[in-house]
Simulated assay, not measured.
Amino acid sequence: MYDFKVNFLYKILLTSHELPPLSSLEIPIPLTPLDKKDGFIHLSNSTQVIQTAVRFFGNEDEILVLKISYNQNGIKENVKWEAPPELEERFPHLYGDLLIKHIIDIVQVKSLRKGGDEGFEWPKGWLET
């Protein structure tokens, strides 16, 4: 089981991704094209989100990252920890809706590319297990 130390999961989106009003608690976050294609919502834990950001969003100047409480209704029971075909590491895949009420925080994370580094400038203390 992969969830024994997990309290938070993270969803990375492009800054252009349209979110419903934060007051609309029961409205689902619109799916990304990849999530639609794969039939589940791609999520990461606190260590995976840094790697995922660099690997899949490394060309972006800024990304939007949603912080999700793993132990709330509608999340934990709908997450399966699965390994992509090319990797052995298991990632959390949400088979269900990600609702506004599941989001506990949202940040825009800036790329370090312009300074010659690789990666993103994460808010201090924001990523938690």
Rank of each mutant, 00 (worst) to 15 (best):
S23C: 09
S23F: 08
S23Q: 11
S23G: 12
S24Y: 09
S24E: 15
S24C: 13
S24H: 12
L25N: 07
L25V: 11
L25Y: 11
E26K: 08
E26H: 10
E26N: 14
E26W: 06
E26I: 07
I27Y: 13
I27C: 12
I27T: 15
I27S: 14
I27L: 10
I27E: 15
I29N: 01
I29S: 06
I29D: 02
I29W: 03
P30N: 05
P30Q: 04
P30S: 05
P30M: 06
P30E: 04
L31G: 07
L31T: 08
T32A: 05
P33F: 01
L34M: 12
L34T: 13
L34W: 11
L34N: 13
D35S: 12
D35Q: 05
D35W: 03
K36H: 11
K36I: 11
K37D: 13
K37T: 12
D38M: 14
G39E: 03
G39Q: 02
G39F: 06
F40I: 02
F40D: 14
F40N: 15
I41G: 04
I41R: 09
I41P: 08
H42Y: 13
H42M: 08
H42E: 05
H42W: 15
L43S: 01
L43Q: 03
L43D: 00
L43N: 00
L43Y: 02
S44G: 08
S44P: 01
N45Y: 02
S46N: 10
S46C: 09
S46V: 03
T47F: 14
T47K: 10
T47H: 09
T47S: 13
Q48R: 01
Q48A: 07
V49G: 00
V49Y: 04
V49D: 00
I50Q: 13
I50C: 01
Q51I: 11
Q51E: 12
Q51Y: 11
Q51T: 13
Q51D: 13
T52L: 10
T52P: 00
T52A: 15
A53W: 01
A53K: 03
V54S: 10
R55H: 12
R55P: 04
R55S: 12
F56R: 08
F56D: 06
F56S: 05
F56L: 07
F56T: 02
F57R: 06
G58D: 01
G58A: 09
N59I: 06
N59E: 14
E60N: 14
E60S: 14
E60A: 15
D61R: 15
E62D: 10
E62Y: 04
E62N: 13
E62H: 08
E62F: 06
I63L: 05
I63K: 09
I63V: 15
I63S: 00
V65T: 11
V65R: 04
V65L: 02
V65H: 03
V65F: 00
V65D: 03
L66T: 07
L66Y: 06
K67V: 05
K67Q: 14
K67D: 01
K67M: 04
I68H: 02
I68R: 03
I68A: 02
I68G: 06
I68Y: 04
S69P: 01
S69F: 07
S69Q: 12
Y70T: 05
N71L: 11
N71G: 15
Q72E: 14
Q72P: 05
N73H: 09
N73G: 08
N73V: 13
G74C: 05
I75Y: 03
I75A: 03
I75N: 00
K76R: 14
E77W: 04
E77H: 03
E77Q: 10
E77M: 01
E77R: 04
